[in-house]
Each structure stands twice: as C-alpha cells, then as structure tokens.
Amino acid sequence: MKNFLNYLWQRLLTFFVVLFIGISVLFLLPRLMPSDPIDNYLQRLQGSAGQALTGEQVAEIRKALGEMYGIQGSLIDQYFGYLKRVFVSHDFGPSLAAYPKPVSELINLALPWTFGLMLVSTITAWLLGNLVGLVAGFFHNRKFATVLETLGILIYPIPYYIFAFVLIIFFAFLIPAFPLTFVVMPGPVTFQKIVDIIYNSFLPALTLILVNFGWNVLGMKSLAYSTKEEGYVLYARLKGVKPRRIMYNYVARNAILPQITSLALSLGSIFGGALITEMLFSYPGIGMLMRSAISNGDYNLLYGTITITIVAVAISTLAIDLLYPLFDPRIRHR
C-alpha cells in the first residue's frame, strides 16, 4: 500500500508540475514579447476588418484581451487571475472572429473530434506497434524480424506532414479512394453519418497511426529483445514452457511496462502530431480551430485552444499513469 500511495502521490505531483510549467509558459510568453500583442492585434483587426468596430467594441475587446493576458494589476495578481480563468471558470473570453461566441463553446464543439481521433489512432498504433515489435524482438534472429524492424526504422523518423502529403497524393489524387478534406454534414447521428465520419477520418487517422506505429515497433522490439535475456525467461524455457506462452506471459507482460510509461510520456508529442494532421486534413478538431484562430488573428481562441491542449495532455498522461499499477503488481502490492 505504501508503494502505491507513494506512486500515486508522485504522479499527482508530476501532473501539477506539468500544468504549472505549461500554464506559466503560456502566461509569460506574451509578457516577454518586445511589442504589446494587444495593440498589434487591434491594429490588424481594424486593418483587415476595417468595418464596424466602434470605439466601444474596441474598448471591450481591449479589456477582454487585457484580462486574458492579465495585463492589469501586479504580476502575481495577473497570474492568479489567469489561473482562475483556466481552472475555475473555464472562461477564455469571447471569440474575436466569431464575436461574441465564447471560446469555450467552440472548444467544446471541437474537443470530441480531436479526442476521438487521438483515442482511436493512439490505441490502434500502440497495440499494433507493440504486437509487431514483440514478434520482431522475440524472433530477433529470423529474417522476418529484420524486415519488421526495418519497416519501423523507415517509418519512425518521417514527420507527420510528410505522411499526410504522401497519403494525400496517393489516396486522394492518384487513387481517389478517400476525400482530401473532411466533409461531414452537421445533423443527427445516423448510421450513414457514422460511416461518413469513419470514411472522412480515415486518412488523418492513418497518418497518426503510421508514425506512432513506427515508434512503438522500435521501442517494443528492443525491449522484447532485452527481456528475452532475463533470468525468468531463461528459466521458463528450461521449465519447458511453450514458446508462445513465454512470448505472451513472460516477455510481453514485462516488456509492456516501459511501453506504458513511454506512451504516457509521449502523449504530448502525439498530441502535437494530431494538431498538425488536423490542420493538414481540415479535420474539425482543436488543431483546425487553432489554425483558423491563427489566420483570423483570434487571440482568445488561440489561447483557449492551446491552454486546453496542455490541460488535456496533462490529464491523459495522468490517466495512463493511474492505469499503470494495473499492469505492475510491484506497485499495487506492498
């Protein structure tokens, strides 16, 4: 129990440190800029929109921005005000492009899309990658293992955007099997709509799966290979345990533990990859929202989406960390 509590305590602490550092960087960044981002923004807004921004509206936007960046009051006050907005009231102000729609509403609409895409692609890539990596590591001196590992090496270092482009070129142009951008009509959920969603999400999901698949294959391959040299695997072999059982009950059960930790740690970069992919495929998630926020100069929306990204990554990481003891009895018991 002591081990477990210790573990729990450490994970929770890490969770708060992640939030603290992430939020603080977001808080400090605009303050380190040489020019005032609000003035920049207002200039650009008036320049581009030009039209009906009354002095009243400008003042209101300035106030909202000022609060968002917390430019009023002392630095400490500003910081706590910001924290309160993020964690207590979930209020990122109104969207400046879709004024006066609140940012949180837009985020709530986009979040399930990103969550779904991430969940499906991350789990698929993790399971598939670990299975292939396990087989490649367990039968490391067979020819097919080398082929599988080479596959991982060829896939892993390639950036998301390259996969996105290559998939677009192949599956949307050369063999037009899948749509180039995401088109799903709003409306009630029907069977046809679900099919549509899957069909439209296929290429972005495949992009994410491919990159993470490569990473998991390589990680698991070397773990399975080194686990195979452990005393308990040798002993199991000398006990006459069948190879398949050794692979699953001995090698996989042990080698999967560092892979769980590694998944938790790499969620941030996976999320980053998901954002890139969403932007390239116009998938209607947080990434797309971020992109439109950038092109519209919608600072409130941008800050909102980025803050939610960091919070979401921190929570998902904590969730995986809390699942970890299920797989490792050494933390669960005594």
Binding site: F20, V25, P30, L265, L267, S269, T305, I306, V313
Partner: peptide, 20 residues
C-alpha cells in the same frame, strides 16, 4: 518528465502568432 509531457508544438504556435 513535465517538460517531456508538455507539447512544444502549440507553444511554438503561440510564439509565432504573438509576433505575427
């Protein structure tokens, strides 16, 4: 570990948009 977990990509996006 916190620095590993925090996604750098969105932070870079913020940086870039702040300086247009």
């Amino acid at each position: 570990d916190s620095f590993i977990v925090i996604p750098a990509f969105p932070i870079l996006i913020i940086l870039n948009s702040l300086v247009k």
